[in-house]
């Protein structure tokens, strides 16, 4: 009974994680400029791989494994914004422009 429930939960996590990864990839292809693409990669992408990692922990049904999976999840969630922030800052400083649809840029004063 418990094992079946865990299996179902794992299946749900796996499917939603993969769906988020796919959505992030579609966003990466479709969005118009670097900064908007970063939105897709840093949010949906992180959540996608984080959910898949969590699925491993749930599937194993062992506490140490779950703890490690959780540690990995937190690690991804904490590093993703840092790298996105660094990259956005570097790109803007060097002079990558926002796309033409952009309506304001307070940094270019």
């Amino acid at each position: 009974m418990i094992a079946g429930l865990l299996d179902l939960l794992t299946a749900l996590l796996v499917l939603s994680g993969a769906a988020f990864a796919l959505v992030a990839a579609i966003g990466l292809v479709r969005l118009p400029d670097l900064y908007t693409r970063m939105h897709a990669a840093s949010k949906a992408g992180t959540v996608g791989s984080g959910l898949l990692l969590l699925a491993v922990g749930v599937h194993s049904a062992e506490l140490p494994v779950l703890a490690r999976a959780l540690a990995g999840f937190f690690f991804f969630v904490l590093t993703a914004p840092v790298s996105a922030h660094l990259l956005a800052m570097a790109a803007h400083k060097v002079g990558y422009r926002l796309c033409e649809q952009s309506i304001r840029d307070d940094m270019n004063d």
Binding site: G17, A41, L87, Y96
Partner: peptide, 19 residues
């Protein structure tokens, strides 16, 4: 920079594969 963002995303997807 676009390529770097995509490579970062690629790492995430490979992590998903490993999981």
């Amino acid at each position: 920079a676009d390529r770097v963002v995509a490579l970062d995303m690629l790492t995430g997807i490979v992590i998903g594969f490993i999981a």
